[in-house]
């Protein structure tokens, strides 16, 4: 037997009976703070739902830019999978803030990363909105952790800037729709534009019913027929609005 082989066997044999005392495990588990581990995953969510004022015009229906959609695919996706509407709005707001504070390249990189991690998050979230990365395959988990690591510097940038640089204005309905109309003129064909304008006027007329001059909204004034109309109009409008980069959602 060579010395090396002898050495191997000897070491195995002599250390065979060595084992950690059973109470050591308990000591260790009591000594760790599990919250420390969770912090990393929570950081991602917290960073994305830090409150900021929203770009949502007043009015019964508010339009908003669907930046957040580009992360989760759609609001529906997000909500069905455990996010709340409020969180979605906050994510949206945070993204708007990011758009303002980051350079163009940075923002593009950020949304690209967010889009990818958003895809993973949809896979691994439970009904309560808790993320379970262990559900991913080993390769995916590696990718996931890498993404989270890549995102961290952006989040600390955003957290540090605190309140948005420029206060996000709350536009009034008219201004908002004016803007959209201007965009529409550039985006839509003649026929599309005509249809769009018609839907918009119908829509605004309807909403005017439930809005006071001071801007306060009273959705309770809507009759059942009104609500049906509203749904119909919303449905018809959304494809156009999507082309413009906004979506309609009711104010809570």
């Amino acid at each position: 037997m060579s010395l090396e082989e002898n050495l191997r066997r000897t070491l195995q044999a002599e250390t065979e009976g060595w084992s950690a005392p059973p109470e050591l495990k308990g000591k260790i588990l009591n000594g760790i703070s599990p919250g420390q581990g969770g912090r990393r995953m929570k950081k991602w969510l917290v960073a994305t739902i830090i409150a900021a004022s929203l770009i949502i015009p007043t009015g019964v229906y508010a339009g908003y830019n669907y930046l957040a959609d580009s992360v989760y695919g759609s609001q529906d996706n997000y909500i069905q999978n455990g996010g709340t509407l409020e969180q979605y709005d906050q994510l949206e707001a945070k993204l708007q803030q990011a758009k303002q504070s980051l350079s163009k390249e940075d923002f593009q990189s950020l949304t690209r990363l967010l889009h990818e991690i958003g895809g993973f998050n949809l896979q691994i979230t439970d009904a309560a909105g808790v993320l379970h990365p262990e559900k991913l395959s080993a390769a995916d988990q590696e990718r996931y952790h890498k993404l989270a690591a890549e995102l961290e510097p952006y989040f600390s940038k955003l957290v540090n800037t605190g309140a948005p640089q420029q206060p996000l204005k709350q536009m009034d309905s008219d201004t908002f729709w004016e803007q959209q109309l201007a965009k529409a003129k550039q985006t839509f064909s003649g026929k599309e534009l005509a249809k769009f304008q018609q839907l918009i006027s119908e829509f605004n007329l309807l909403n005017a019913k439930a809005t006071d001059p001071d801007g306060s909204t009273h959705p309770e004034r809507f009759t059942k027929a009104d609500l049906n109309n509203q749904s119909r109009l919303t449905e018809e409008l959304n494809p156009y609005l999507k082309k413009l980069g906004i979506m309609l959602k009711p104010i809570q």
């Binding site: 588990l29 760790i32 599990p34 919250g35 581990g37 969770g38 990393r40 995953m41 808790v130 993320l131 379970h132 990365p133 262990e134 991913l136 988990q141």
Partner: peptide, 8 residues
């Protein structure tokens, strides 16, 4: 991964 998510 489970540990990082907070599982003791």
């Amino acid at each position: 991964a489970r540990t990082l998510a907070g599982s003791r």
